[in-house]
Design a protein around this nucleic acid. Structure first.
Length: 420
RNA sequence: GUGGCCGUAGCUCAGUUGGUUAGAGCGCCAGGUCGUGGCCCUGGAGGUCGGGGGUUCAAGUCCCCUCGGUCACCCCA
């Protein structure tokens, strides 16, 4: 076996699959740019504090899953485990005009046990919109996620949405919830019997039967929202209705990062197993800029995992015909100089062209031409050189096998004609 | 982090109760007459059986460790 392979939980994405990867990326970037979002490219590692403070010291991601390291200058750094924190840090640092609408595509690193659809390096696309607390912006962001996924052809999608309240109403709710849990500790699952006090909201999100049973009797945040939050949430739902975006309100949707306020949402694919069905999620984070040392600035965004989207897409039978292929393949029987010059010429004229190397036999070159997916093969041997022509052979299509000779001067025009 | 299953050529896999130079299909390469692909025929290259240690006269086959994959839990994208 090779001495080196990709580290645990990481992988190489090679051609047929990388073509799907690129396709998804392109669809995404087109859509968000059309909505006025600009690309932000930020470092893949940050001061550890950027993530600690924003995601939350007690969160699973921060306590157990971050790739932390010291650089040679003694700085305490971490590889980005998700997309939002860096973008918001960049906002605070540069103070661009608001509303600032940004999109990103980035790897994200989490030290987790690898599993189907779960990697130590996965890739996310996402958007962040800072500087407005208008609920219509929440709607815009959700519509972008929903539209992006549906536009790819995904059909089986479930959008769940909830409001987490804000600093005015959540603390009160949390103490109500604590009080409730305190008298019902025995009803919790054994994990949460230990941890409910530190982060009571997580109990709502627990998938174990005891907690599920208990939470149905627990106080609802929905009923404790302050007027502002309630109005905001109502307007978001109204907007989704207006745009015909289907959703399910879920009182128990609690996302794993501490920075969320008010709107939170998650999209799950119905064709994936529950363990890996989240294809995107996000929400509002109105206090986050301050946590990172900036002025109070509301924000909302989402992240979506490319690997998950690809899994769902494959499960739904999308991306059938993305094989990359060239249109023209040059077969040179004179040693290679002809192929060298012709491919250069053809590519310069905008034709996707490939050739064989190493002066292989004609049979081998044609076999390669066939594999390349090319529609036409150009054959140049001694005869052609002497007569200053090129033999054009059609490899596929209704005219397959047809062969003709064309003067070199007319070559590009003739090839384009045959390809159209 | 915990637990189950798995690890043989580039890929998909066979390898009988441990016993001779480890096999197949696909793929790849070369030939099947001088310059014509996809089909067919023939031949060839390619594996320290994930790695290390142990048991044994003998291990791909048994045991231990380790690395990796996979699935579940957990968490999430």
């Amino acid at each position: 076996m090779n001495p080196f392979q990709a580290p645990a939980g990481t992988r190489d994405v090679l051609d047929p699959e990388s073509a799907r990867f690129a396709f998804v990326l392109e669809r995404f970037s087109k859509r968000v740019r059309r909505a006025g979002y600009g690309l932000v490219i930020s470092p893949m590692f940050e001061d550890l504090g950027v993530f600690n403070r924003s995601i939350g010291e007690d969160s699973e991601v921060v306590t157990k899953e971050m790739y932390e390291f010291d650089d040679k200058g003694g700085r305490r750094l971490a590889l980005r485990p998700e997309g939002t924190a860096s973008v918001v840090r960049a906002f605070v640092q540069h103070r661009p005009q608001i509303p600032w609408k940004a999109w990103y595509a980035t790897p994200a690193f989490r030290y987790e046990r690898p599993q189907a659809g779960r990697y130590r390096q996965h890739h996310q696309v996402g958007v962040e919109a800072l500087g407005s607390d208008d609920p219509d912006l929440d709607v815009e962001v959700i519509a972008l996620l929903d539209g992006y996924l549906r536009d790819l052809g995904l059909r089986s999608l479930d959008l769940r949405i909830n409001s987490m309240g804000d600093l005015a109403c959540r603390p009160g709710y949390e103490s109500d919830l604590r009080a409730f849990l305190e008298v019902n500790v025995d009803g919790l699952c054994k994990e949460h019997r230990e941890t409910w006090h530190r982060n009571p909201m997580r109990v709502l999100d627990c998938k174990r039967p005891p907690c599920i049973e208990l939470r149905s009797r627990a106080p609802r945040l929905r009923e404790s929202l302050c007027d502002d939050c309630a109005r905001h949430f109502a307007r978001v739902l109204e907007g989704l209705d207006a745009l015909g975006i289907r959703y399910e309100q879920d009182d128990f949707l609690v996302r794993g990062f501490d920075y969320y306020t008010r709107t939170t949402f998650e999209v799950a694919s119905g064709v994936l197993d529950a363990a890996q069905n989240a294809v995107g999620g996000g929400g509002r984070y109105d206090g986050l800029t301050e946590l990172l040392g900036g002025p109070p600035t509301p924000g909302v965004g989402f992240g979506s995992g490319i690997e998950r989207v690809l899994l769902a897409g494959e499960a739904e039978g999308l991306f059938g015909d993305l094989d990359s292929h060239v249109d023209v393949f040059v077969v040179d029987l004179t040693g290679g100089a002809q192929a060298r010059d012709l491919t250069h010429l053809l590519r310069g004229a905008g034709l996707s062209t490939d050739r064989a190397f190493d002066d292989r036999s004609m049979k081998a070159q044609l076999r390669q031409a066939d594999r390349s997916g090319a529609t036409v093969a150009l054959i140049v041997g001694r005869d052609e050189v002497e007569r200053d022509v090129v033999t054009i052979k059609l490899l596929r299509g209704t005219q397959a096998h047809h062969q003709e000779q064309t003067p070199r001067l007319d070559l590009i025009g003739r090839v384009k004609e045959l390809l159209s």
